[in-house]
Simulated scan of single mutants.
Amino acid sequence: MSVTVTGATGRLGRHAVETLLRLGVPASQIVATGRDLDKIKDLADRGVTIRRADFSDADSLAAAFDGTQKLLLVSTTTPSERSENHRRAIDAAQAAGVSHVVYTSTANAESARMILAQAHRETERYLRDSGLPFTILRNGWYLENYTSQLALYQQHGSIAGVAGQGRVNAATIADYAEAAATVLSTDGHLGAVYELGGDEAFTLAELAAQVSDATGQAVVYNNLPADEYTRLLAGAGVPEPLAHVLADSDLGLARGELLADTGDLRRLLGRPTTTPAEAIAAAIAQQHQAS
């Protein structure tokens, strides 16, 4: 079995490679790809093949996927470029004779009205139409979207957003990566579409209460109008197009579009998912180690 992982220089792809190794897939059967190979040189030192793959460069994708049997297609980061990037990757996989493509989509991609869902929906359809055997992993929100902001929450005493009373069941990047590695290393997943999310759903007000409990500092949820939240993000240095997408995603959260309570993630992992409290505690521990 030859498994190729795209985006191994990013968090999800890197975790997927590490999990494949932990699950016993020989390093010689894993290909880790990315644009900057210096970031994954240590994987080469451990016996993993590393190859350059730039989603804007079809030739690099063809070379990266050569000899691949199973491909983990990790969605690219820039929303406006995703559809074309993914089309090039799927075309390259088809030309390389890949026998199974596992694609990381987003929760409720078929029905969600969020801006982020559009490119994923288009990719899913293109993948289906390609005729390639596939599995779709509709990953929900990352807990790290919140835990990475702990210092700011503590600084301002608030979590800002436009999610209202919407509920989200986020999970950790490591949990999603482990699910992907499980699909890549076991049978029975061809044609499956998994809606993935954590076991525990929460509102952002409930998240603020958990942050307060864990840090001993009062943190509240501050629900804002979408345009005001967009300006707040842009003022904090987030590029305006991304700030708009993030605010739109919060509106999707309010509509329930980031809620995936199927239990699929727990079943793939064979264990409970990481809870928000556990993720917050881990983030606090990292803060202490860094200080």
Rank of each mutant, 00 (worst) to 15 (best):
S2P: 11
S2D: 14
T4A: 07
T4Y: 11
V5L: 09
G7D: 12
T9R: 05
T9H: 07
G10P: 01
G13Y: 11
R14C: 01
R14I: 01
A16N: 04
V17K: 10
L20P: 01
L20Q: 10
L20A: 07
G24Q: 09
V25T: 12
Q29G: 07
A32I: 00
R35C: 01
K39H: 08
K39P: 00
K39W: 06
I40A: 12
K41L: 13
K41G: 15
D42H: 15
L43R: 08
L43I: 04
D45P: 00
G47Q: 04
G47E: 02
R51E: 05
R52C: 07
A53W: 02
D57W: 11
A58K: 15
S60A: 08
A62N: 12
A62F: 06
A63G: 04
A63D: 13
F65N: 05
D66G: 09
D66P: 00
T68N: 10
L72S: 01
T77E: 14
P79F: 12
E84M: 13
E84D: 15
N85V: 10
H86K: 11
I90C: 02
I90Q: 01
D91S: 14
A93K: 02
G97F: 06
V98Y: 04
V102E: 08
T104A: 04
T106F: 11
T106M: 12
A107D: 02
A112H: 04
A117V: 02
H120E: 01
H120F: 02
E122H: 07
R128F: 15
D129G: 12
D129C: 09
S130G: 09
S130R: 08
L132T: 04
I136R: 01
L137G: 03
W141C: 07
L143E: 11
E144T: 09
E144P: 02
Y146A: 14
S148E: 13
Q149A: 14
Y153K: 07
Y153V: 05
Q154K: 15
A160W: 13
A160V: 13
A160I: 11
G161Y: 05
G161W: 03
G164A: 11
G166P: 01
R167G: 02
R167W: 02
V168I: 14
A170L: 02
T172S: 15
I173R: 12
D175C: 02
E178V: 10
A180T: 03
A181T: 05
T182L: 08
V183S: 10
L184F: 05
G188W: 12
V193Y: 10
E195S: 03
L196K: 02
G197F: 01
G198M: 07
G198A: 10
A201K: 01
L204T: 07
A205W: 05
E206H: 10
A208N: 03
A209T: 15
V211P: 00
S212G: 13
A214N: 08
A214K: 08
A214F: 09
G216D: 05
G216V: 04
V220M: 10
N223G: 14
L224M: 15
T230R: 14
L233A: 06
A236G: 13
L242M: 15
L246W: 05
A247L: 03
S249W: 09
L251K: 14
E257Q: 09
E257Y: 05
L258E: 04
A260Q: 02
G263Q: 09
D264C: 06
R266F: 00
G270E: 13
P276H: 04
A279W: 10
I280N: 03
I280E: 03
A285H: 13
Q287S: 15
H288A: 15
Q289K: 15
A290K: 12
S291C: 06
S291E: 14
S291V: 15
